[in-house]
Design a protein around this nucleic acid. Structure first.
Length: 582
RNA sequence: GGGCAUAUAGCUCAGUUGGAUAGAGCAACAGCCUUCUAAGCUGUCGGUCGUAGGUUCGAGUCCUACUAUGCUCGCCA
């Protein structure tokens, strides 16, 4: 809020400090009855050789006696100033607070906290990145939903975003699949349910390889032939890839995610030779135990393996090649990898290698790491079939949502229920991946994901429907008055609960900024949750459409509209589409 | 063994650049639907912030050591 800055300017003058330093020190008191803006005076005690309490009192006197026109103007917006311990607490006039927050909200419309900082800049966000021929489980859901939210955040700030899906479509595992397919593949099963069939033979491969380790050698050989362009291997690989993509695309379509680039590892593989040349030219490649590595002691990292001892490539070399490719083709300002924490070391190495190769702005490559989804007794494992398929989770969540709607809203048309249940059910799942700090592991629990009360997407969506419903039911005259609301009417929002709600709304734009800077959508989720809780308390205690008088009713309706707009904006950044009824 | 994380209420988690009495949700218990949607609201219960030191006017937050857990450390991705 501007007034916070105005207060800082005045304080900075008295203290002969930079305004920005004072702004840094201004804080929100822990409880509303202590004021709206607080200035702690403790750190000034040494300089003035006085107690913080006395300094606060002196500042208060300065403030109230100041005849500078700006300060006089400022004081008309301040109800009173109090000192408490070493704190100087400002109480902003409630009517002014309501006006200024609501005007700002109305002006920002449906995109509060938007910005144009990214104008003309390009950001690549790589996320989802499932492995071909393997089930799309809830672990991939984490990367998919987190990555989409981060991509949305950059778009919200005006960046041009390129969504990359770095498909895991290469490597020794495909040798295994080719060998397994030739031994046990069932063409009809592949057509009917591709991932299930590929998983079946993949699991069987590992079972049998326990007793017949020579299968592993056959698999390496098969991948070798694939890399050399062997006809039979390439045909099979292409087929596995196609059927897998069909399944993945069904999921992406369902959750409304569309990638701009789906080049997988196979795409980058042919580009590695040039990287190796470059490394050799710069004398960075060192032979070690028959393999070729880049030493990274100066980064306090272990050597990065570039070529295996048999001369074939490895994932680090593919990632390095991809960075140069992306630089060349997209000239990105930032290149973001939404990939799990276990690959932290890998990305540190990859980024260090490109830096050593003279990559400009190496810090533009960022690994946005996230935690592991696992069961209480350990991690997911495709090999043992111990996973939760994302689609199954979505289906279960949607089914539960539908059952609740049918109970609560028996008159709703079945066709309408379908659409709404899908949005809420999918939204509930997405929210569970975005509500907490991304680096936390998630221990999967059906009860937890399917809990639609309290800290959940349905709670947020429910709050939005309340706001929308008010608008739907408001009489024409009230709506008209709300559309042309005056400052005087907005100034009626002075109750404790209205003021609390206003302050929560005013914090939303900053949460968007913090979320983007930290690549942490959870910051926004928490803020809209705070708005929702605050609104529901207000809604429960105050009459809106039947307020004591029409002026107050109109002001409250405008407040509810702001709540709906702001929560919806936050949900959309998270990829969750609001509904009007539920 | 080296490196990187994490440790806050019974459970899942927040906690701004160090600031006032550490907060939510879930669970448990007690209430609130003839009133704008009860997927809601109100209240109660619940804490040596892993341990021990240190820095500071002030530490959940910063520093050091230790403990526990997880991940990672060249020929998988």
């Amino acid at each position: 809020m501007r007034i916070v800055n105005d207060i800082a300017v005045a304080l900075a003058t008295y203290l002969e400090e930079d305004t920005s330093d004072v702004v840094m020190n201004l804080a929100s008191p822990p409880r509303p009855e202590m004021g709206d803006v607080a200035f702690p005076c403790f750190r000034l005690a040494k300089r003035f050789r006085k107690s913080p309490h006395d300094i606060a009192n002196n500042l208060k006197k300065h403030f109230e006696a100041d005849e500078c026109s700006d300060t006089v103007e400022l004081l008309t917006k301040i109800d009173r100033i109090e000192t408490a311990g070493g704190y100087l607490n400002f109480f902003i006039r409630r009517d002014f607070l309501a006006q200024s927050i609501m005007r700002e909200s109305i002006e920002s419309g449906g995109r509060p906290g938007k910005s144009c900082e990214g104008e003309g800049k390009t950001v690549i966000v790589e996320y989802s990145s499932p492995n071909i021929a393997k089930p799309f489980h809830v672990g991939h859901g984490f990367s998919t939903f987190l990555g989409e939210a981060i991509a949305n955040l950059y778009e919200y700030a005006g960046y041009k975003v390129e969504r990359f899906n770095h498909l895991g479509d290469y490597g020794t595992q495909f040798g295994k699949l080719i060998v397994a397919w030739k031994l046990w593949g069932d063409i009809d099963a592949l057509e009917a349910s591709p991932i299930d069939e590929l998983t079946r033979i993949y699991v069987k491969f590992h079972d049998v390889a326990e007793t017949k380790p020579e299968l592993e050698d056959e698999a390496r050989a098969a991948f070798g032939r694939l890399e050399q362009g062997g006809k039979e291997e390439t045909t099979l690989w292409q087929r596995f890839r196609d059927v897998s993509l069909r399944e993945f695309n069904r999921i992406y379509e369902r959750v409304g995610i569309h990638f701009d680039n789906t080049n997988g590892e196979s795409f980058y593989s042919p580009l590695i030779a040039a990287v190796v040349d470059e490394l050799e030219k710069k004398n960075l490649l060192v032979e070690s135990d028959g393999a070729h590595v880049v030493n990274l002691e100066e980064f306090d990292l272990n050597p990065c393996l570039i070529l295996k001892s048999d001369g074939s490539t490895i994932y680090a070399s593919r990632d390095i090649a991809s960075i140069f490719y992306r630089r060349r083709e997209y000239n990105f300002d930032r290149n973001i990898y939404v990939v799990g924490i276990p690959q932290k070391n890998h990305f540190n190495q990859v980024f260090a290698v490109v830096e050593k190769m003279g990559f400009p702005n190496p810090e533009s490559n960022v690994h946005v790491a996230f935690g592991t989804v696992k069961f209480a007794d350990g991690a997911f494992s495709t090999r043992t079939g111990n996973v939760i398929i994302l689609e199954d989770l979505l289906d279960t969540s949607v089914a539960k949502t539908r059952a609740i709607i049918e109970t609560n809203n028996p008159t709703m048309e079945p066709s309408e229920i379908d659409g709404i249940a899908e949005k809420i059910g999918v939204g509930a799942v997405r929210y569970t991946f975005l509500r907490n700090g991304r680096e936390r592991d998630i221990v999967f629990s059906w009860d937890d994901v399917l809990d639609f009360e309290g800290d959940s997407a349905p709670y947020l969506l429910y709050t939005v429907t309340r706001c929308v419903s008010l608008e739907r039911k408001a009489p024409e005259s009230l709506l008209e008055r709300a559309d042309n609301i005056s400052d005087g009417e907005l100034g009626l929002l002075v109750s404790d609960e209205e003021q609390e709600l206003l302050k929560e709304i005013s914090r939303f734009p900053h949460s968007v900024l913090s979320a983007r800077e930290a690549h942490e959508p959870s910051v926004i989720m928490r803020q809209i949750m705070a708005i929702a809780r605050s609104f529901n308390t207000f809604y429960h205690n105050a009459q809106i459409l039947r307020a004591e008088n029409e002026a107050l009713g109109a002001a409250r309706l405008v407040l509810a509209q702001a709540v709906g707009r702001t929560i919806s904006a936050g949900l959309r950044i998270a990829g969750i589409e609001p509904v009007e009824k539920m």
